[in-house]
Amino acid sequence: MSRDIDYGNLMHSAMRGLIKTVLQDVADHGLPGAHHFFITFDTSHPDAELADWLADRYPGEMTVVMQHWFDNLVVGEDGFSVTLNFGDAPEPLYIPYDAIKTFVDPSVEFGLRFESAEDEDEEEPSADPMPPAINTDHAQEDADTAQKSDAQVVSLDSFRK
């Protein structure tokens, strides 16, 4: 019986570790310079925790922005918690790393996309590779949207053979 090295899952694990390291640095020292993050995650993930009204409004996935105002960032082994501002209403979230679909820092044009087996089975790629961001800082909405569109997203599956 032979076994294969599962490079796809190993890459996903390494990239989730990178996100964990970046978030821990932000928790310890704050966001440096113009850095900010667009994080798209699966709201239906069994371990994701978010307010019922957010889960109802975004039943499949949502994108949050960590930029000017966020609080209580706690980085754990399997995910992170953070309080974000949704229309002047602070809401705590818990996002498991394996629920993350995309992680983008448009200030340096860095992005990661985690594709699942269902994504690979789609015959036509989506015209919009990332859903619109739920901007938690209304003053920066237009600037953030413009910066987001310039970001490069790296698809790990493009390296698979």
Rank of each mutant, 00 (worst) to 15 (best):
N72E: 15
N85I: 04
A55L: 01
E61N: 11
I134M: 13
P96K: 13
L50P: 00
A51P: 01
E124G: 01
N72C: 06
N85G: 08
T21N: 03
V82F: 04
E91K: 14
V65A: 06
P129A: 02
F103V: 02
F103M: 02
D42C: 05
L31W: 03
P96V: 11
A55N: 03
D119R: 11
D42I: 01
V74Y: 01
A89K: 15
L31P: 02
M62D: 07
V22G: 02
I95Q: 12
I39S: 07
G87P: 00
P129E: 10
L112Q: 11
Q67W: 06
V65Q: 04
M66K: 07
S107W: 02
D98M: 04
F110P: 02
P96Q: 12
L93Y: 15
P132Q: 07
T136H: 07
P96E: 11
I134L: 13
A34S: 15
N135A: 06
L23Q: 08
S116I: 05
T40V: 12
A133F: 06
V64N: 05
F80A: 13
S116R: 15
E124D: 14
M66C: 13
R113D: 07
E49Q: 15
D98I: 05
E109G: 06
R57G: 03
S116V: 08
V22I: 05
E120P: 00
H35K: 03
Y58W: 09
F110A: 04
S44V: 07
H45R: 09
I39A: 06
F38D: 09
D137N: 13
V26Q: 02
D47A: 14
D47I: 00
P32F: 01
S116W: 11
H29S: 09
F70S: 07
F80H: 09
D71S: 14
E120I: 05
W53K: 10
F37P: 01
L73D: 14
E109D: 13
E120V: 04
E120Y: 03
D98T: 11
D71V: 00
P46H: 10
T63F: 00
Q24D: 09
W69C: 08
F70R: 03
G87V: 00
D88T: 04
N72K: 14
V64I: 15
T21C: 01
R113F: 04
D78F: 10
